[in-house]
Design a protein around this nucleic acid. Structure first.
Lengths: 122, 122
DNA sequence: CTGTATCCTAAGGGATACTG
DNA sequence: CAGTATCCCTTAGGATACAG
């Protein structure tokens, strides 16, 4: 048995734990964007297409709790908040890069092409 | 825009595609077990603790459709079926190993210990 | 021993509206 | 600008029963 418990839940393999930290639809895209360095909320939003406020905030909070990112609040107005990677977060980037590479390979294998912006069909 | 479509669904990054192939609770454990070589259904079941028949079968079917594993049926009785990795599946092992390593690191960082079998508390 | 089908619940995630 | 809350729906995944 290699079971272990984290936050009251049972995990059966380290892989599962990894997915608890960086899994889901949005955590990886967020982490990847933050590799650029400190970013404030609006910048994050602009760099992650299609994400909703709810998802961005909830995922930021989770990543924070798990020690992947940090938040720095500036006492200014209008309010300013920066998000940036912790050492653990930076470490995860390498893992995500691996997943990204494999994904690109899958695209080739399956003959997938990036959606080109359709020209007006006149 | 780096969007692309696969099986009628829109993906926004290669990472998402990767997760479609090896994501979920059980696909990675299954692939990892198959690194040992050909295995029949019963052997798979025995080597993946806590998995239910429904999940094992459904995930095997999905992995097959995606070209990660193959099925070989022997005309015997009782029936015998072998499952084994395709080249693509073998390639995924390296990725999963990366995730596994990171998970082990997370366990250390979070001070998680493997659940020891409790001794009878007499 | 291999393989499906049905029922049901918990959780992830989208849309939308609202506040300091 | 940054940050929450509520409603709702889809889906992964568990339990169980059944079939060649």
């Amino acid at each position: 048995m290699k079971d272990f418990t984290y936050n009251g839940r049972i995990y059966y393999s380290p892989v599962e734990l990894t997915m608890a930290f960086i899994g889901g639809t949005w955590k990886m895209p967020i982490l990847l964007v933050l590799r650029k360095g400190k970013l404030r909320y609006g910048e994050l939003k602009n760099n992650i297409p299609h994400i909703t406020d709810k998802m961005l905030y909830s995922q930021l909070r989770e990543l924070e709790k798990k020690g992947m990112i940090e938040r720095k609040v500036y006492k200014e107005k209008p309010p300013r908040v920066d998000y940036f990677l912790t050492p653990l977060g930076k470490r995860s980037i390498k893992v995500i890069d691996t997943l990204n590479k494999f994904g690109e390979h899958l695209m080739v294998v399956n003959g997938l092409m990036v959606n080109n912006r359709k020209r007006p069909q006149n």
